[in-house]
């Protein structure tokens, strides 16, 4: 195997682990709702009945998809 191939795989591995790490930190941050932080997140957003906790759920779902989109685009760019 050439050094260039190995280096490319290592770079890709670091990228995979970085994205996984970011995802896991965000994913487990949802637990904050069941800690004393949850009291802050449980407040209403403005005049609506939406709470920070509910907003956090939606934002996490959207952020996970965004992370995947970025990962996919980076992979495509590298493949070219």
């Amino acid at each position: 195997m050439t050094d260039a191939n190995i280096e490319a795989v290592h770079r890709k591995t670091r990228q995979r682990l970085l994205f996984t790490g970011i995802h896991l930190v965000l994913y487990f941050s949802f637990t904050l709702n069941w800690t004393s932080w949850g009291e802050r997140l449980g407040g209403y957003l403005g005049e609506t009945r939406l709470t920070g906790s509910l907003m956090m759920f939606v934002v996490l779902v959207v952020t996970f998809i965004f992370l995947e989109t970025v990962f996919l685009l980076l992979s495509r760019r590298e493949a070219r």
Partner: peptide
């Protein structure tokens, strides 16, 4: 969230 959170890891 538990069920959904698995898929990005699956992909990465």
């Amino acid at each position: 969230l538990g069920a959904f959170g698995a898929w990005p890891v699956f992909m990465f």
